[in-house]
Design a protein around this nucleic acid. Sequence first.
DNA 1: TTGAAAGCGCTAACAT
DNA 2: ATGTTAGCGCTTTCAA
Lengths: 340, 340
Amino acid sequence: MNYKTTIADIAKELNTTAATVSRALSNHPRISAETKKSVHLTASKLNYKRNRVASSLRLGKTHLIGVIIPSAEINFFGSVVHGIESIANLHGYSVLLYQSNELKQYEEKGVETFLSARVDGILVSLAKGTTDYDHFEQIKKRKVPIVFFDRINDELGIDAVVIDDYKGAYMATEHLISKGYKKIAHIAGPAHLKNFEERIRGYSAALRDHGMSTDESFIYQGNVSIESGREGARQFFSLPDPPDAIFATEDFTALGVLKELKERNIKIPQEFGIIGFANEQFGEHITPTLSTVDQQTVQMGRSALNLLIDLIDKKDETGRPRQKIVLEPVLVTRHSTDRN
Amino acid sequence: MNYKTTIADIAKELNTTAATVSRALSNHPRISAETKKSVHLTASKLNYKRNRVASSLRLGKTHLIGVIIPSAEINFFGSVVHGIESIANLHGYSVLLYQSNELKQYEEKGVETFLSARVDGILVSLAKGTTDYDHFEQIKKRKVPIVFFDRINDELGIDAVVIDDYKGAYMATEHLISKGYKKIAHIAGPAHLKNFEERIRGYSAALRDHGMSTDESFIYQGNVSIESGREGARQFFSLPDPPDAIFATEDFTALGVLKELKERNIKIPQEFGIIGFANEQFGEHITPTLSTVDQQTVQMGRSALNLLIDLIDKKDETGRPRQKIVLEPVLVTRHSTDRN
DNA sequence: TTGAAAGCGCTAACAT
DNA sequence: ATGTTAGCGCTTTCAA
């Protein structure tokens, strides 16, 4: 009885019409203060809650933002979602969450669901398994505002927010150089992912800019895991002239390196320096604490949502150039590189 | 033009009516196979996507589940949400996410939003700052299905999913006993939170059941942080007869203890044993690796959602007794307790 | 300042 | 097997 209260019920109670009630509730300027007061009063008396579904249908606006991430279990994305959601609320939007589990198939289902739900905008971080992009063409065709974050594709002309992987890698490598390490190797991530490619570029550029040679044998192709860190380290130590420092493409890889070095009783940071990328939580708790590059996750979420809202608010503007926001990474120096 | 395709457009194209199209699309038994085929064909030709908003309004069902968590940045909740979302999709539900940031005020806003959005059900893990529960009474009054998880309240008669904190604590303590530690202390969490209270109970019971005395001075009141772990440890070592093991109420507290012990050059696990609770990611990467109790996070999410769906499907059943699912914790033994 | 009426897109009861 | 009609609850144009 008090769940399904509608504006009609309020109107009846007050001997007026639904139109007036609707206007009063949305604070229409040409409704008398008196009416407004009595409407609000009976509304709360009858326990009225605006039905957003009906409102959305009428207005063609749902105040819903769809967010597709690979997995909520991954720290990084939890953090970004935190940033997204906090700003979304500020603007009166609610967040619909969908996990791709790194599979294109689920990513497509997410897009379907969101389109069907008539979300006002979509935020996506691409699944590893996504190699073609028809589902995003769909979104563009329907003119639903969309923004990529972190795992992006530059070919689709879709707005995006990323951190500067190139620069982060450059900073990390330069940090090792500044600490006096002379032979710096790199353990990379899957080559087809842009982020890791950029990090290789940053690494190489830093070496070059400091007059250090880049050697193919000093780049190991890993796959973002503790094990590939270990394996990379092993590989490097089998070289006739092994490195004295490693820039790992992300923290778990760095952790693998660290474990391998410990087993070999190599002293960190005196004999060997190691720096990661991502600023995972464990980094500040292991021994030695791990130097790394922070990815500004929460800020990334905020920026992505702000960009999306811009898009939503000025949907008409055609010919608007693509926007790409590149966030500054932040170097986090800890013990694993702290020699003097 | 092809965004706003409706069933009416399809109907016109085929010289039939919206009703037929609607039925064909939802695979109604009394529609000819032929019609269905042509409808589906034109639907995809016109790029039709069912408008869920309209459908929801008509059916009084949104296929939306609202989830309120303290923060998506906290690992634990990311993991639970992962479990929730995966099952939700299986059942055709989408997940609306809301963060309370541990504040009652936002929790209330979340409830408001969800009620207004007419979600089919609500999942909540209570904010630390929540001490009165009017907003949940609201939900009950409106008969919107709701399930609590992890941070629950037993007084409201609301269904819930938790892990057995008592048992987990009992297992942890007993594990220390089985390893031969004789003087086992405990660092607790905020007393007003049920979970921590239960863990104290489990700890005490295990000691009692093994004929060991429980001493008030062996329980330190912490606040779930690295610092309170350190402080607790310091306190214990200032005792005339300090403990030889600590069960910490969660992993960060345990980490603090560990750091303090290391600084004092106390050998773990030989001289001192330490076990935590939560199975945080860092635990398996620190030195020594941390024994702990796993909280079955993903499973918790799954169970909560399954329970909620039961509730949604049989909403009519009044007088149904409250359900409370208690998940089994899992002991994770690692080096920090591994002496023989 | 308020009322009457139409319509957002879909579905279902009731025809035929 | 398909058409007709009404209505979910809200907002807004048009009229008064």
